[in-house]
Design a binder for these strands. Sequence first.
DNA 1: TCTGGGGTCCTAGGACCC
DNA 2: TCTGGGGTCCTAGGACCC
Length: 432
Amino acid sequence: MYALLDCNSFYCSCERLFRPDLEHRPVVVLSNNDGCVIARSDEAKAAGIGMGTPYFQCRELVREKDVAVFSSNYQLYGDLSMRVMDTVRQLLGPDKIEVYSVDEAFLDFSAIPPDQLEAYARNLRQTVEQWTGIRVSIGVAQTKVLCKVANRLAKKQKAVTGCVMVLDHPEKTQSALEQTEVGETWGVGHQYAEKLRQWGISTAWKLSRMPEEWVKKNLGGVVGQRLFHELNGLPCIEMKDPLENKKMIGTSRMFGRRVFELKDLREAVASYTARAAEKLRRQSSAASVVEVYLVTASEEKFTYHPKKYSASARLSHPSSMTNELIAYTLPLVEALFIQGPRYLKAGVNFSELVPENSTQCNLFETTGKTSGSSCGRKENKKLMAALDNINASQQGEMVRFAASGLERSWKMRQELMSPRYTTKWNELFEVH
DNA sequence: TCTGGGGTCCTAGGACCC
DNA sequence: TCTGGGGTCCTAGGACCC
């Protein structure tokens, strides 16, 4: 058996943790640039604020219902997420947890006796709340997809379930699937949901009763087939190895104001390159290919039709050094840039990642941009390590490349940010 | 005026090979 | 009129997730 542990309205719960006065007030958290609503407390949902609604569209409602609004504070959420995951690790064992996202983890419950599943899950839920202050819901079932179903209902019917649902009998599973709209099923997005509804398949239960071949043919081949088996209690999606590295690493941002100039784009791309390179080094990878893309606003008025332009380059040897990577990404921005359109966003992607220590130097290349022996890269590596160290301990871009600019007026807006209570000395929670 | 960021996996189709 | 069969590799793009 598996379990899915999911924090309730995670970002809102984090904001409330240090603001008990918000306990019964509606709370929402906005995306970067204070663009859309990406997290809502139950009260905010009840007030009619939809997921993903642009902030400017619900300002009225926010005022009317006295909603507390926050910019996203990822340092705070990241730190509290770690506390939750560590708690679970401590109770269940380090190899029994797969952290799936900042607020979710799949748990391996195979060692727990069938008659104790429910009690175990309830105890776990209770302990996490007690130790971290974060409320979680737990769904237990034979497969990951069924855990998702269980978890969703556990949360939706809090009063009845106490945030825990165990699907350990076929009748329970059937009933849960019947209560799950097909579009709410994990793995069924907008497109498939629409298609399925046209066929009269309205619930997860109906989908699970279709012929396997039909599902395979109409729901993306093997992906659909897997979903079908999972719905029928046959596990196809295993626990993932936590040590697995990412295959692609990127950084992108919408701009905080109107951008037309090459100078701003260069600075932004240099910044994103630096940020993505940091992520590369954190998992000890080096990139073989870099891609830069720019997104422009469309010419058509009143509609939102962004257009993406991208260009890529292969490195002479895989690298994770910020200065080397910037030397590839900046020429790409320059090649892509055209005078005229307004730019909304830029991004950098690194792919074909290889382990950092296995990278080969290019035999025909001179010793590189910095002085020194053996590819001239040892010093460079030390420099990057020092840079990462300083920036990690200071929680920000304390030291950065000049190419990323000084003024940086294109940076995103975050006007409603709460203090980083748990990770910054000068923003600690104070008791008077 | 104002719409996020970071990923994964899979398929189709073209180019190329013998 | 009639034009093979089997395979690999790569890329672009679709669909999904939180």
